[in-house]
Nucleic acid binder design. Structure first.
Lengths: 209, 209
DNA sequence: TGTACATCAGTGAACGCGCGTTCACTGATGTAC
DNA sequence: TGTACATCAGTGAACGCGCGTTCACTGATGTAC
């Protein structure tokens, strides 16, 4: 993939005191680099350095090692995903309670489809460091599932009937959606987003009575 | 992982005309090697050679290159999985139609949990070579989904009511199960099999009216 | 106002590693004469 | 029955590669005097 725009002139060095800026540039480069595809092994220090137009050694001023960089990317990504879901939720009129559930999950699918590399990275590294496997796993995923649970609770308050408790419904929909998205990633097919979204809608309708 | 039993004496060479045996030994070694964990990048030619107690170069008499070896492993694995599901199906009395669906999916989960490396490999390499992405993706997964579809059709014939056509129900259950299993792989937790199986049972009950 | 210097952002070159793959080989064994 | 030879299973050593990481460095710039 000789796609890189060949950084003709050298990168301008950041002014004094602004060294932290490079940290953001590195994260942005990692973002760009493998939004396209690839799992964790596609995220290499040298690749990120190339994408950022800097020397590999320069990364080490901002990230102690590769795992620290990966951690930084993942944290940033969870922020993006949560924001996208919250925004989708708020963009639907308050009385369309089921529509808000769907909007959140659509945003989830869109993120996963648009950022396959990030999505895979996020879901394969969701152990909070130092946290042993407990009875309720999920790590950084928990706030996301909680948001879906809240959306289902709104449905119940509005009179919609669920076939199971709202938190179980949220897990069910979340897990099923992850399955669908993961299969899409493993073999992208035509009409991706539409088909994934159709599946998720059907899944959501299943948890309602 | 200095776990290898240190093959004190050299491997006995296969007798003349039996060179093909090594092919099986190589596959078996790959099997053993990463049943434990790991994705594709954990499957290395040198690693397999070490596990088989042979020289890396020896693999090339039986597999043209790494992708051929991977293809061989995957083919073998799909055979194992199909057989396990068929056997589970047949081990349930014919009149317990729903029980037979569940038994098949339980076998699927057991395989996935016991062979994480293989499972991941299978699901991330399911494009039949030379087959462009068509309207019905799935590749080697299709026979498996078809078996589940057949089990759901038996349910309908026995008078059980589904909330959707049997083939959609099969896809729904399959996709959801994959989601659950994939999440387990990313963060194994206590009581693995039981919790996964409980989820799948709940999912199956959802597609019935 | 001028100059020495500490600080800071960032780098070039090298390290050791494990990888996939190649190639000329070794040595046992069945077969032809 | 004996021997030369072709065949076969399998190997050791080397190749070039990209990787993560380290370390001594460069050169611009703000600050102290």
């Amino acid at each position: 993939v000789p796609d890189e725009p060949e950084p003709a002139e050298r990168r301008a060095r950041n002014p004094r005191g602004q060294g932290e800026r490079l940290r953001t540039e590195i994260l942005a480069a990692a973002e760009r680099l493998f939004s396209e595809l690839g799992g964790e092994e596609a995220l290499t220090m040298r690749g990120v350095a190339r994408a950022a137009g800097i020397a590999p050694a320069s990364i080490y001023q901002h990230f102690a090692d590769k795992t620290a960089l990966v951690r930084g990317v993942i944290e940033h990504d969870y922020g993006r995903l949560s924001a996208a879901m919250r925004q989708a939720d708020e963009s639907v009129t308050a009385d369309d309670v089921v529509g808000r559930v769907k909007a959140q999950m659509h945003a989830y699918c869109t993120f996963a489809i648009d950022n396959p590399g990030h999505y895979r990275l996020m879901l394969s590294h969701r152990r909070t460091p130092g946290q042993e496997p407990g009875p309720r796993p999920g790590g950084p995923l928990l706030p996301i599932i909680d948001a879906v649970t809240a959306a289902f609770e709104r449905c119940e308050r509005a009179g919609e009937r669920l076939r199971m408790p709202s938190d179980r419904a949220a897990v069910m929909v979340f897990v099923g959606t992850h399955g669908r998205v993961a299969l899409y990633h493993a073999e992208p097919a035509g009409g991706a987003t539409d088909r994934v979204v159709a599946f998720v809608d059907e899944l959501i309708s299943l948890v309602f009575a």
